[in-house]
Write a protein that binds this DNA or RNA. Structure first.
Length: 554
RNA sequence: GUCCCAGUAGCUCAGCUGGAUAGAGCAACAGCCUUCUAAGCUGUGGGUCGCAGGUUCGAAUCCUGCCUGGGACGCCA
């Protein structure tokens, strides 16, 4: 299925055996053979730097080593057309053109599965992301983390990992008490009372809405009830309301979780006590509190687990949650956090190690901040809510396709400027449309082909694809599975938007240069139709990975 | 003060597990629609890769120091 990778593999093996045959190095001391795809076509289809790497081992000049390797190469084995030595000792390989011929049939056969590999070998990975406190609206910044976690999960699945997506609900602790008290205050205010918001209350307009709704539904009934009972009810009500809204927004943003994990459930099952027991060797008492010696694992200072008042810090149930994850048998845990939480990483990794696991079992991906720009100016606050722009409002403004695409274009560790006008624009400035248009264009062509009586499933021979633009397209198509595997392995979803943009660009370029449907050249037309189908599949699969739609027409 | 991220073309960013003349989009300039969607294509100009050292046959990429911008340093979550 991964044709290009197979070609590469064969070539690597042949180079390796040529090196040993030429007596340049023993098999054990052979460095990993690295083949790169040169940017400049004059440097061939693949280039190897092995001669430079061997300079020290073989104690010879790189160019001389390269000559020896080339001498020993069996060119028939790896379908090599031509070999050149260049620069300081690069060996450039020009492959027989037909090595590309296998790509299109492989794509047509694989269909929606094209790009999938078994690189991950079924390893169990859990991706925890978003996990926003259910005390208010998701804002646009959360959208970046949501898109990142979701696309990363998609990539891991495509690369053959066994992935579970999870949202950790902070439904215990202070912030939920504050939510309850905030709801209470808004409820009483809705009844015309002069109730004051708690000091750390949540001032979002959504809480005001809850208050009004409660007042309308129950009138003064809750006001007359026992305070404790009332707050308990508001607590549940507020939680359910906020969580429902978060679920709905994320669902609309095309993000679905396998599990919504309740912090409260950790309290109910005694899991926190169990986790504390597990940390026992690294726990001590001081100043009436219980501490975790995270400095044993490189943290700046030790951290409190149980406060003087006997309650847990945020860290403690979170450790229990991670113990729970590990107990479920995941090989790898990936957490997606906002940049403002980066300082929390050392203590969490300390916990992982204290529980007997390798530090890298937990990988934390930090997502840098997002700034919104409109009409060239930074948008700080929403006029409507007084808070940061809600994710819902962003979706309404620019659409889910554009929002998701933009969040994914940039590497997670650079701050993102989100240009609202650009995301909204239906013009060639907008990369989302550019890519989608490529897909739509192919769909139109294929419809035209049918209308003109071409058989879309006619037999074809890729040898009729001879122009440079066709070659470029086929090479690009062939890179897709490796790109997916790399992006999954390196947690770099932005490689997908980059790839899909490049593929779209090659398609547009080809489209403008060549005509696909030609009654006078049936054989070439059949081959080109097959090529177009392969590009369409690959574009659609790439867009599927980032959950952006692939329209049939625009 | 310590830690994390960034600093690459006028702007927004790729490239960073070291490799050949540093890439893309936008902006600027010049062209392309009687032909499968011009939401497109073709071409031109544009760079001390923040600064200074170091490692290396080779550094935007690795190491050290410094500068600038953003973020974090709670018995908050």
């Amino acid at each position: 299925m991964n044709v290009l990778a197979q070609t590469e593999e064969t070539l690597k093996q042949e180079i390796a055996s040529a090196v040993t045959r030429a007596g340049l190095a023993e098999a054990e001391e052979l460095p990993e053979i690295i083949l790169e795809k040169p940017k400049d076509k004059a440097h061939g289809d693949f280039a190897a730097n092995i001669a430079m790497q061997l300079a020290r081992i073989a104690k010879k000049a790189p160019r001389k080593i390269a000559e020896d390797i080339v001498e020993a190469l069996d060119e028939t084995k790896a379908s090599i057309e031509k070999v050149e030595i260049a620069g300081p000792g690069f060996i450039n390989f020009f492959m027989k053109d037909d090595f590309l011929g296998e790509i299109i049939p492989a794509i047509l056969k694989a269909g929606k599965k094209y790009g999938h590999t078994d690189a991950g070998k079924g390893e169990k990975v859990q991706v925890e992301f978003v996990s926003v406190n259910p005390t208010g609206d998701l804002h646009f910044g959360h959208g970046r983390g949501a898109a990142y976690g979701d696309v990363l999960s998609n990539l891991l699945e495509a690369a053959g990992y066994d992935v579970k997506r999870e949202y950790y609900i902070n439904d215990a602790g202070n912030q939920i008490d504050n939510l309850a008290l905030s709801v209470e205050a808004r409820y009483l205010q809705a009844l015309g009372e002069d109730a004051e918001m708690p000091a750390d209350g949540y001032h979002g307009k959504d809480i005001i809405e809850i208050g009004k709704t409660l007042a309308a539904e129950y009138g003064t009934a809750w006001k007359e009830k026992d305070r404790e009972e009332r707050v308990a009810f508001f607590r549940e009500y507020g939680l359910k309301y906020e969580l429902g809204k978060i679920r709905k927004d994320l669902s609309e943003f095309r993000v679905e979780f396998d599990q919504w994990f309740s912090e409260q459930s950790l309290y109910e099952d005694g899991q926190i006590e169990q986790a504390l027991k597990k940390l026992d060797d690294y726990v001590y008492e001081k100043d009436g509190a219980t501490w975790f010696r995270t400095t044993d694992f490189g943290d700046d200072k030790d951290r409190v687990l149980i406060k003087q008042d006997g309650s847990y810090t945020y860290l403690t149930p979170d450790i229990a949650y991670h113990k729970n994850k590990l107990d479920r048998g995941f090989d790898k845990l990936i957490n997606v956090w906002g940049a403002d939480h980066h300082g929390y990483i050392p203590r969490m990794q300390a916990a992982i190690q204290a529980m007997g696991y390798d530090k890298n079992t937990l990988e934390v991906k930090v997502i840098q901040m997002v700034s919104l720009f409109e009409k060239g100016e930074k948008v700080k606050m929403s006029k409507r809510t007084g808070n940061a722009l809600a994710l819902r409002e962003l979706m309404d403004e620019v659409g889910v396709d554009a929002a998701r695409y933009y969040f994914i274009t940039r590497s997670n560790d650079t701050q993102l400027d989100f240009d609202m006008d650009l995301a909204r624009s239906e013009s060639n400035d907008n990369p989302v449309y550019y890519v989608q248009y490529a897909h739509a264009r192919i769909c139109t062509m294929l419809k035209q082909a049918e209308a003109k009586g071409f058989d879309l499933n006619a037999a074809f021979d890729a040898k009729h694809l001879t122009t440079e633009k066709e070659m470029d397209l086929m090479k690009k198509l062939g890179e897709f599975p490796q790109m997916v595997a790399d992006a999954a392995q390196m947690s770099t979803p932005h490689k997908v938007t980059q790839y899909v943009f490049e593929l779209a660009s090659l398609l547009h370029s080809f489209y403008n240069a060549e005509k696909v449907l030609d009654q006078d050249n049936r054989e070439r037309t059949n081959a080109r139709i097959a090529l177009m189908k392969a590009v369409k599949i690959t574009l659609a699969n790439a867009l599927q990975l980032i959950a952006v739609t692939a329209p049939e027409k625009m």
